[in-house]
Design a binder for these strands. Structure first.
Length: 700
RNA sequence: GGACGAUUAGCUCAAUGGCAGAGCAUCUGCUUUACACGCAGAGGGUUGCAGGUUCGAGUCCUGCAUCGUCCACCA
């Protein structure tokens, strides 16, 4: 039945092959390293970067899945005991938002349900939708060990998170404190610096006159006049000649009539604005530091809803920030405190999950001290134990660590790991748990967990560059802190996939493209090959369908070349031998070309040069094998019987080797054809018998 | 403000300092028994701009322009 498919169909039909072949692989058990034949000894591990459960697959995921599957399949064929461990991340804020949106449609808020019911709702949603992304990976042919699938909210994983928190706590690296933090009023939670996105906004720079006690005045410039309700000082640069005589005097806060100090601080830039800055320790990071240094009072005037609080000035309480801004500007104007109003474009921080403008407010939060951990993350990269590919990502990584602030690890949402302390309602930043992934997914903190013993540390991490600091750095220091081992050796940062127009692919922009559309139209192999073909080492990759079309045509070429070769040997069982003895010029040429291709593909894959390997395979198979050797072989067939036999052997030998080399890139079609070659005996395999091309021996 | 990357055919991309190529698209001719998802061919380029080094520059150096990304952020 299946044999006739190859012999009779002149066009490759992926739909008739893919599900069948994926089932064959799953039935074989070879995705699971414990079930690989005994000859697979040395472990090789990739842990899948846990895609967040709200995620829908876009080309970027397909790119990463393809890269990892190429690596893991090649290593499996090389005889490694390969584990590709899949899983998903609970993605606290993102998931909570999705479920909240769903509730809003039903006319409810999460507060109507209460915490427990709400979490049940999230779990229900996760059961229903959370694994979609993993089935999408299967469609692409990813050879993950699904029996080991992990989720960051599993019971065991939860234990790991708790243990990590307690160990940090024991060392005194976790502290609770009231700090000015990034606050998203929509999500009602604190955010770390890495969770902000900046958007350029046109605003104004207002110059406001603050009278000085005893005569005169000082003019400050600000983009946020409403925060003046919380001003507790005016600061100037100590070297600024214009203001030297005012240092130490007292200014009167307009409208509020509070007396505030005029102080000197190095951090003030003489050349910006008027060179004098109003200091609001409660609502600005830099002002907070100035406030600490000069022991200034901190007056909070904006609450967690983004509204004015307190009775600093009557008529303001309960106003939204922007309303207060408008009102205060008009009052300053009418009372002649406004000196100047100029247009000013600046970067405004936004929540990376819901795009709401971030407020800076003082809040009681949990922090993880970063000084020692940053060093831990630095060392292995500096010493070369962990290598970035491309290398250029090393510098920004180290720069970030050099200046990193303590990590605010608490979030005021409901979906996440509760901070393990009595009475605590906050949950941990999702990245706190993601940081433990390589070892927690393998059973840590149980030191006797067999996966942890056998497969940790892992070999390669492949990920996107926008989470190098957010995730990679944190995995490295967590790994070293808790297991004393680096969690992986190679960090491969893949290209960011852009649209043809050069736009980022994202759901919110409506620019995301679902790769399954291409799997459906062109086949999984064509999609993978088309994507891999384009990986040329650039940091961006404009996605075009052309290459996938090429992949489809290439599949067809492979299919038909195989039909031709198998047609030559009829259906009798054959032995495929390494060609020896007297060979013709064309014979020698194709064999030499095969050797060259094997060498270059091996070299390129070792260097993560996937596109180059694809080009070499494409050129070899199409131009050298099909255009030249197969055409030439048609003539040789008319010659002496002995020569014809030799030619048939070379045809099958080169075809088999080509299929093996192509398998990591195009797993389905190569497996399908391999299954149909009537092989009696294999030349290369250490095992000597035919099973799956997936575990066939890789040529070196 | 700092760092990095990109700029080559209509599009997406290649090219250890040595004759600028591929895929897609376009055009011409082929129903040649593996493949029309194919075969044989053709057209299409002042390699972003201006200098410099060199016998020789797409490639190295300097400056500029445009685009992109990350980091920091000035109130």
């Amino acid at each position: 039945m299946s044999k006739s498919l190859l012999i009779s169909n002149g066009a490759y039909e992926p739909k008739q092959v893919e599900d069948k072949i994926y089932k064959l692989w799953e039935d074989s058990g070879f995705f699971n390293p414990d079930k690989l034949p005994k000859r697979h000894k040395k472990p090789y591990t990739i842990v899948i970067p846990p895609p967040n459960v709200t995620g829908e697959l876009h080309i970027g995921h397909a790119l990463n899945a393809t890269i990892q599957d190429i690596l893991i399949r090649q290593k499996r064929m090389q005889g490694y005991k390969t584990l590709w461990l899949p899983g998903t991340d609970h993605a606290g804020i993102a998931t909570q938002n999705v479920v909240e949106k769903k509730l809003i449609k039903e006319g409810k808020s999460r507060f109507d349900l209460g915490r427990e019911k709400f979490i049940e709702e999230v779990l229900r949603w996760k059961e229903e939708k959370g694994n979609i992304i993993l089935t999408q990976f299967k469609k692409l042919g990813s050879s993950c060990d699904w029996s080991r699938t992990r989720f960051t909210m599993d019971k065991n994983y939860e234990e790991a998170v708790k243990e990590a928190f307690l160990q940090y706590h024991k060392k005194g690296w976790i502290y609770q404190g009231k700090r000015v933090v990034n606050w998203c009023k929509r999500c009602a939670t604190s955010l770390s610096d890495l969770e902000l996105e900046y958007a350029e906004e046109k605003g104004k720079l207002w110059h406001i006159k603050y009278p000085v006690k005893g005569g005169g005045s000082i003019i400050v410039a600000t983009t946020r006049p409403e925060t003046m309700l919380g001003d507790t000082a005016v600061a100037v640069n100590p070297k600024d000649e214009r203001y030297k005589k005012l240092i130490g005097k007292v200014a009167i806060l307009p409208l509020v009539n509070r007396e505030i100090q005029i102080i000197a601080d190095e951090s003030v830039d003489k050349d910006f604005g008027t060179g004098a800055v109003k200091v609001t320790p409660a609502h600005d990071l830099n002002d907070y530091q100035i406030g600490q240094k000069h022991k200034l009072e901190s007056i909070q005037v904006i609450n967690e809803m983004g509204k004015i609080m307190g009775e600093v000035l009557s008529g303001y309480q309960g106003l939204k920030v922007l309303e207060a801004r408008e009102k205060i500007v008009s009052e300053l104007k009418s009372q002649n405190f406004l000196e100047k109003e100029e247009d000013y474009t600046h970067q405004v921080p936004k929540c990376y999950r819901c795009n709401t403008t971030i407020e800076l407010i003082p809040s009681l939060q949990w922090f993880l001290k970063m000084d020692k951990l940053a060093k831990l993350a630095e060392n292995p990269v500096k010493s070369g134990k962990i290598k970035f590919h491309p290398k250029s990502f090393q510098k920004p990584y180290l720069d970030w660590l050099k200046n990193v602030k303590d990590w605010c690890i608490s979030r005021q949402i409901w979906w996440g790991h509760k901070i393990p302390i009595e009475g605590e309602e906050s949950v941990l930043d999702t990245w706190f748990s993601s940081a433990l992934w390589p070892f927690a997914a393998m059973g840590w903190p149980d030191k006797n967990a067999s996966d942890l013993k056998n497969f940790y540390p892992t070999n390669v991490l492949s990920t996107a560059r926008d989470i190098v600091n957010q995730w990679v750095a944190r995995m490295i220091f967590s790994g070293l802190e808790f297991t004393k081992k680096i969690p992986f050796e190679d960090v491969y940062i893949h290209a960011t996939v852009l649209t043809r127009e050069g736009q980022r692919m994202s759901k919110s922009l409506g620019t995301g493209i679902d790769p399954l559309k291409f799997v459906d139209e062109f086949g999984a192999d064509a999609t993978r090959f088309g994507i891999a073909f384009q990986i040329m080492g650039n940091q961006d990759m404009k996605f075009v369908t052309d290459n996938i079309l090429m992949g489809k045509k290439f599949c067809n070429k492979i299919w038909n070349a195989s039909r031709f070769v198998l047609g030559q040997i009829d259906s009798k069982m054959i032995e495929i031998k390494k060609p020896t003895g007297k060979l013709s010029l064309v014979d020698k040429k194709i064999l030499k070309s095969l050797e060259k291709t094997i060498k270059s593909v091996n070299r390129d894959l070792n260097l993560f040069k996937f596109g180059k390997a694809c080009h070499a395979l494409y050129d070899f198979f199409w131009h050298d094998f099909c255009d030249k050797y197969i055409e030439e072989s048609k003539k040789q067939n008319n010659q002496l019987p002995a020569q014809a036999e030799k030619t048939k052997n070379i045809l099958t030998y080169v075809l088999l080797n080509s299929l093996i080399l192509l398998h990591p890139f195009m797993p389905f079609i190569t497996e399908e054809i391999y299954q149909q070659i009537p092989i009696k005996n294999l030349p290369a395999g250490r095992h000597g018998k035919k099973e799956c091309i997936m575990i066939e021996e890789w040529p070196n």
